Simulated scan of single mutants.
Amino acid sequence: MAIVGTGNIGTDLLLKVIASPMLRCDLFAGRRSESPGMELARTHGVPTSVGGIDAIVDMANDIDIVFDATSAKNAMRHWSIIEHLGLPFIDLTPANLGKICVPALNLDECLNEQYVGMVTCGGQAAVPMAYCINEATDGLAYLEIVTASSSASVGPASRANLDEYVVTTEQATKIFCDVERVKTILIINPAEPGIVMRNSITISASESVDMEALCASVDTMEKQIRSYVPGYRVVVPPVSAAGRIMITVEVEGRGDWLPRSAGNLDIITCAAVAVAEARAER
Rank of each mutant, 00 (worst) to 15 (best):
S150F: 03
Y142M: 09
A141G: 08
V154D: 00
E144T: 14
A152E: 09
A136F: 10
A136W: 07
A141M: 09
A141L: 11
G139A: 00
A152C: 07
T147S: 10
V154G: 00
S149F: 01
V146F: 02
T147A: 11
T147N: 06
L143K: 02
S153C: 12
D163H: 12
R159H: 10
D138T: 13
G155A: 15
T147M: 12
G155N: 05
I145C: 00
E135L: 12
S150T: 08
E144R: 15
S150V: 10
S151R: 12
L162T: 06
E164T: 02
D163G: 13
Y142F: 14
S150D: 09
Y142D: 07
P156K: 06
N161C: 14
I145M: 09
R159P: 12
G155H: 05
A157H: 02
A152N: 09
D138K: 04
V146G: 00
R159N: 13
I145G: 00
E164L: 03
Y142G: 04
D163E: 15
N134Q: 05
E164N: 08
S150W: 00
L162Q: 11
E164S: 06
E144W: 14
V154A: 02
S158E: 15
I145P: 02
N134C: 13
S149E: 06
T137R: 05
A160S: 12
D138I: 09
N161P: 07
G139V: 02
S151D: 08
D138V: 08
Y142W: 12
A157D: 04
T147D: 06
L143N: 02
T137C: 10
E135A: 11
S158V: 13
S150H: 03
S153Y: 00
A148W: 08
A152I: 14
L143I: 15
A136M: 14
D163F: 13
S158L: 14
P156D: 08
N134E: 04
S150K: 02
R159Q: 15
P156G: 03
A136Y: 06
I145T: 04
E135K: 10
N161F: 03
V154W: 05
E164M: 07
A160I: 03
S149G: 01
N161Y: 04
S149I: 14
A160Q: 15
I145Y: 04
E135P: 01
A160L: 10
S153E: 10
L162M: 15
N134G: 11
E135T: 11
L162D: 08
E135Y: 03
G139T: 03
D138S: 13
S153W: 03
A141V: 12
D163I: 15
L143R: 01
A157M: 08
E164F: 07
N134T: 10
N161R: 04
A152W: 01
P156M: 09
N134I: 05
A148Q: 12
V146C: 05
Y142T: 07
L162E: 10
E144I: 11
P156N: 07
R159S: 11
G155C: 13
S151Y: 14
G155D: 15
A160T: 07
D163R: 14
G139S: 02
S149W: 06
R159T: 12
P156R: 07
A136S: 13
R159K: 15
G139I: 04
D163N: 12
A160H: 05
S158G: 14
S153L: 08
D138N: 14
V146I: 14
V154R: 00
A157W: 01
